[in-house]
């Protein structure tokens, strides 16, 4: 497989994963602001997801409008979907026809002026759910139609790398700030929204019943073996696909397996006690550093051919 193609597949899934994360976050945040007058949560998202420090926008709707449809900011949904689709377009012979059709449809619909008009008449949550549906179709289609070859592995490496970064961000920003603000912690809706935004509410209730604590959340997001968005789960997946890539491509000697294996084992031998001992910030930072190294190594090994 061409390096350029591999790179495009990696980014196709990364963009799709990032858009999915953004949509879930918007939905949860909109939902939570229905019960509160606090607008600062939108400002936090604008800052961390859009890179916008100060915004004039002062309604949830205008923020959602911006984050979904604004063409001038690279991180908006419409621009990320466009990028994902451009990546897909140039690798059509490597992805299943169904993947291409689903991503092209998503792009066509979101770019259609009528679609934008429809947003104005809809309940925001209904509307975001509609968008999320495109991602669910994309994931399902990839699952049932894409051959488990090289292309699938590059897609998954992109997907899980992005997902781990999102979960780290969640620990760093959301969970860490809990320690400083105590006023909402007695309200169950607060916890619910927090967990819903990362898709972990149902599993949390099943695992810990309805006793909310910061520690439980840290454990769920970092170390749960079965939660698809936990760091441990995603790192295990990343490791699997990194190993497969090695088998498929037989690249020159490199450190990728070692690095991914090291990260995997580090999580394997972590528990809540060791995380607390290390400090949540340090724990998250350490993983982020390792991910950066892995990401650079992937670039070096697979995406850039240096002619000797």
């Amino acid at each position: 497989m061409l390096s350029r193609v591999a790179n495009n597949l990696f980014w196709m899934d990364r963009y799709m994963e990032r858009s999915y994360g953004l949509l879930n976050l918007m939905k949860a945040n909109y939902n939570s602001t229905l019960d509160s007058e606090d607008f600062s949560s939108w400002e936090t998202i604008m800052k961390s997801y859009m890179g916008v420090e100060h915004t004039e926008k002062n309604t949830a709707l205008s923020i959602i409008d911006f984050m979904v449809f604004d063409r001038s900011n690279n991180n908006t949904l419409i621009n990320m979907v466009t990028s994902a689709r451009e990546n897909a377009r140039s690798v059509q012979e490597h992805v299943s026809r169904e993947i291409w059709l689903s991503i092209n449809k998503y792009f066509l619909d979101i770019s259609n002026p009528d679609f934008y008009k429809s947003f104005k008449h809809k309940d925001p949550i209904d509307f975001i759910n509609e968008l999320i549906q495109y991602h669910h179709i994309y994931y399902s289609v990839a699952d049932v139609t894409q051959e488990r070859g090289n292309a699938y592995c590059f897609m998954n490496v992109g997907k899980y790398l992005e997902r781990i970064l999102q979960s780290i961000d969640f620990l760093n920003v959301k969970v860490d700030s809990l320690k400083t603000m105590n006023n909402n912690l007695n309200e169950s809706y607060f916890w619910k929204n927090l967990l819903v935004s990362i898709g972990g509410y149902q599993l949390y209730i099943k695992t810990y019943k309805s006793i909310f604590s910061i520690d439980n959340i840290i454990e769920l997001i970092s170390l749960n073996e079965f939660f698809p968005r936990s760091i441990k789960f995603s790192v295990n997946k990343l490791y699997t696909h990194v190993m497969r890539l090695e088998k498929f491509n037989k690249p020159h000697e490199n450190n990728l397996n070692f690095m991914a294996g090291k990260l995997r084992n580090q999580l394997k031998y972590s528990n809540l006690v060791s995380i607390k001992k290390q400090g949540l910030k340090n724990f998250a930072y350490e993983i982020q550093l390792q991910l950066n190294d892995i990401s650079n190594e992937i670039n070096k090994v697979y995406f850039y051919q240096i002619i000797s």
Binding site: R4, N150, F248, I307
Partner: peptide
């Protein structure tokens, strides 16, 4: 046709042979 779609940058010439730059090397 089931063939690779390449751009100029995906190809490279070495010793009068044309190679494509794949994830597994040339």
């Amino acid at each position: 046709m089931g063939v690779e779609l390449v751009e100029g940058n995906d190809l490279v010439v070495e010793n009068n042979m044309v190679y494509m730059k794949t994830a597994g090397g040339l």
